[in-house]
Design a protein around this nucleic acid. Structure first.
Lengths: 261, 261
DNA sequence: GCGATGCTTCGATGACGATCGAAGTATCAG
DNA sequence: CTGATACTTCGATCGTCATCGAAGCATCGC
C-alpha cells in the first residue's frame, strides 16, 4: 500500500530531483527567523511598540550597522515595515499575520522547552498577561475569550469567530467603535494560539481595541521593557466583572490537551 | 531530556546583551527550518509517510552523507523521529505539533507569495484535497469541518473542539473506535489552519481516523509522490452525503478574512 | 562465509553571511 | 553655516556550516 515510494529512491542518485517541489517555501522565512539577532529583534517587536534601529540593535546585542543589514533583510522578506519620522526610523511587524506566526513559533518552542533564558523572574508576569503584538495574551487573554464565548458575545465555530447581535451591543456600550473596526481591511475577530496557555485568545481588530480600552481606562499598564501587562487593582475587578467565567462546576474541560509537567 | 540541543552550537556572539531575553527561543527552530535542504525534507515528511534517509536525500537533492547530517540535526532539535526497521531507517515528523507548526509556516509563506515553484500544475489538486501530516486538508478538509460543526457532530468554541453526544454515536456508526482514540495521549479533536483555504480543518486523532477511513473504504487515494489526495467517483458522492453543507442561502460568511487576489 | 545495500562518521573544501570599522547620506538644532 | 544624531552603504574579516569523497559499521540475501 505505501510501498511504491521506493521508486523515488531509485531515481537520480546524486543531484536534484526536479519534481517534488510543491507547496510554499518555508526555508526563506525560516532562515530569516533562524538568525539569533533577527529573532531577538522580531521578539522585541512582538511587544507591539514601534522601535528604532538603535533600540533594536541594543536588544539584539549588535552594532547599528549589523542591525541595519538585518532590518533591510527582514523588510525585504515582508516581516517588518518601517515608518520614517524625522531622523528616526520606526520599525514594526508588517501586520497581524507576522505576529500570529511568531507567536505560533513561540508556542511550539516553549512547549519543547526551547527557552533562552531558563524561565526568568519575569516569566510568571508574562504568563499572566502580556501583549501579543497588539492584543491581550496570557491567562487573562484566554480567560477573556472563554468568557466572551460563554456569554455569547462571540460565537465560535472552529476558528471562524463572529460577533453576535447582543455582542455587538455590548461592545458598543463599552465605547468600541465597531463600524470603524469593520471598515478596516483586517478581520474583526480572530483566534491566536497562546504559547503559555496553549489555548486561543482573541486577536483581530476587536482584540486590539479591547486592549487599548484597558490601557486607556487605566485598568492596566505596560511594563517598560517587556511584553508584560500589569493590571491595577480596579482593573482586576473591572476585568472580572466584565468577563465573568462560568461557575467552576460547569467548567468545560480546560483543554483536551493533557499537558503533563 | 530535551536539553542537549547544543549540537546546533548556538554560538555566543560577541555582543551578547544580557537583559531582554524573555520568551521562548524561536531562532533555534528557525535555523533548523531555514536550510533549504532541511525545509525540503520536512515538507516531504508533511505528507505523513515515513521516508528513508535515501528517499529524503533524493527529494532534497543532496547526497546521502549530507542528508544524514541534516537528519541528525533535525532529530536533535526534536522535529523528526526515526524508527529502525531492518537496514532501513524510517523518518517521520516527531508528532502532530510539528506538522501543525509547519503547516502554519506554509500558510504564512503561501499568503506572502513565497512559492518555490510558481504554482505548478499539481497545485489545484493540492488545494482541493491533500494530506496534512496525517489528516485531510484543503477545500475538502475545510468543508468537512464546516459540516461537522453545522451538523453538531462537533461543538466548537474557539479552538476547543469537542465531540457532541450525537457526534459520538455518528462516528461510532461509521466504524471509528472512539474509546481507542481517547485512550491515546493526543487530543481527539483539534483545529489546524489550512494554508490554501486560510480556514481551519480538523486535526487530532479523529481527523487522522477519518482520513484513514476514506482511504480504507477506497473513497480516496494518495497520489504517489505528492501530498495530493484524489477522491474516486463513489468517494465524492459518499463524502458529500456524509458531510453535507448548509444550504447556500444560509451559508455563513466564508471567512471574515477578505483575501483579494 | 561473501557481496550488496543502507546509513553514519570523518575530514577537507568551499561558500555564504554575520560582524564591525570607516565612510557616506539624511535630518535636526543651533 | 556647524556640529550632532540617526541611519545606511562599503569593504574586509572571520566563523560556521553545508557539501561531498572516502572509509567505517550494520543488516540483509545468499
Amino acid at each position: 500500500m505505501t510501498i511504491e515510494v521506493s521508486v523515488l529512491a531509485e531515481g537520480k542518485r546524486r543531484g536534484y530531483h526536479p519534481g517534488m517541489k510543491e507547496g510554499p517555501d518555508i526555508a526563506l522565512i525560516g532562515s530569516l527567523i533562524g538568525d539569533p539577532a533577527r529573532a531577538n529583534m522580531l521578539t522585541a517587536l512582538t511587544a507591539g511598540k514601534a522601535l528604532t534601529a538603535t533600540e533594536l540593535a541594543g536588544t539584539a546585542g549588535i552594532t547599528l550597522q549589523t542591525a541595519s543589514s538585518h532590518l533591510s533583510k527582514l523588510e525585504a522578506g515582508g516581516l517588518i515595515a518601517q515608518r520614517k519620522q524625522g531622523r528616526h526610523r520606526y520599525f514594526t511587524l508588517a501586520d497581524d499575520d507576522v505576529g500570529l506566526m511568531i507567536e505560533g513559533l513561540m508556542g511550539f518552542a516553549a512547549y519543547r522547552g526551547f527557552t533562552r533564558h531558563r524561565t526568568g523572574p519575569k516569566d510568571p508576569a508574562l504568563r499572566k498577561a502580556r501583549v501579543c503584538y497588539n492584543h491581550l495574551a496570557g491567562d487573562y487573554g484566554v480567560r477573556m475569550l472563554d468568557s466572551l464565548i460563554a456569554e455569547e458575545v462571540i460565537s465560535g465555530a472552529g476558528d471562524t469567530l463572529q460577533l453576535t447581535a447582543s455582542g455587538t451591543d455590548k461592545m458598543t456600550a463599552l465605547g468600541i467603535d465597531l463600524p470603524a473596526l469593520t471598515r478596516l481591511r483586517r478581520p474583526v475577530c480572530r483566534t491566536c494560539l497562546d504559547w503559555s496557555e496553549r489555548r486561543s485568545h482573541l486577536a483581530g481588530s476587536l482584540g486590539q481595541a479591547l486592549l487599548s480600552l484597558f490601557l486607556d481606562k487605566g485598568w492596566a499598564r505596560r511594563e517598560p521593557d517587556s511584553r508584560a501587562i500589569r493590571f491595577t487593582g480596579t482593573g482586576e475587578t473591572e476585568f472580572a466583572k466584565l468577563f465573568p467565567l462560568p461557575a467552576p462546576s460547569t467548567v468545560e474541560p480546560r483543554h483536551q490537551h493533557t499537558v503533563e509537567a
